[in-house]
Amino acid sequence: MLKIEVIVQVHQLKRQGFKVAAIARKCNLSRTTVYEYLERDFEEACRWAEDLKTKNTEA
Score class of each variant (00 low, 15 high):
Lys55Phe: 04
Lys55Pro: 00
Leu52Ile: 06
Ala45Val: 04
Val34Pro: 00
Val8Asn: 10
Thr33Asn: 01
Arg40His: 15
Leu29Asp: 04
Arg40Ala: 07
Gly17Tyr: 06
Ala24Cys: 09
Lys14Phe: 12
Ile23Ala: 02
Ala59Gln: 14
Thr57His: 10
Gln16Glu: 15
Arg15Trp: 01
Val6Ile: 15
Lys14Asp: 05
Leu29Asn: 04
Arg31Asp: 14
Arg40Pro: 01
Arg25His: 13
Arg15Cys: 02
Arg31Glu: 15
Thr57Ser: 12
Met1His: 05
Lys3Met: 05
Gln9Ile: 03
Arg31Pro: 03
Asn28Ile: 08
His11Gln: 15
Leu38Trp: 06
Ile23Phe: 04
Arg15Lys: 12
Tyr35Glu: 05
Glu39Thr: 14
Tyr35Cys: 02
Val6Asp: 00
Leu29Val: 11
Lys14Ala: 13
Ala59Tyr: 11
Thr32His: 10
Thr33Phe: 00
Leu38Ala: 07
Thr32Val: 09
Glu5Ala: 10
Ile4Ala: 02
Ala21His: 11
His11Lys: 15
Thr33Gln: 14
Val8Ser: 09
Glu36His: 13
Gln16Ser: 10
Ile23Thr: 05
Lys19Leu: 12
Glu44Gly: 09
Leu2Arg: 11
Thr33Val: 06
Met1Lys: 09
Thr32Lys: 11
Asp41Val: 06
Tyr35Lys: 11
Trp48Phe: 13
Asn56Met: 12
Asp41Met: 07
Gln12Arg: 15
Glu39Phe: 06
Ile4Pro: 00
Ala21Ser: 15
Val34His: 00
Met1Tyr: 02
Thr57Met: 10
Val34Ile: 06
Val20Gly: 00
Thr32Met: 07
Lys53Ile: 14
Ala21Leu: 08
Leu29Cys: 09
Met1Phe: 02
Lys19Ile: 11
Tyr35Val: 05
Ala24Trp: 02
Leu52Ser: 03
Ala22Val: 12
Glu43Tyr: 02
Tyr37Asn: 04
Ile4Arg: 08
Ile4Lys: 11
Lys53Arg: 13
Lys19Val: 09
Asp51Leu: 14
Glu50Val: 08
Glu39Met: 09
Val6Gln: 07
Cys46Ala: 09
Glu36Pro: 00
Leu29Glu: 05
Tyr35Asp: 07
Gln9Cys: 09
Cys46Lys: 13
Ala21Tyr: 09
Asn56Ile: 08
Asp51Gln: 11
Cys46His: 01
Glu5Leu: 12
Thr32Gln: 12
Ile23Trp: 02
Glu5Met: 10
Leu13Cys: 08
Ala49Arg: 06
Gly17Asn: 05
Ala49Asn: 03
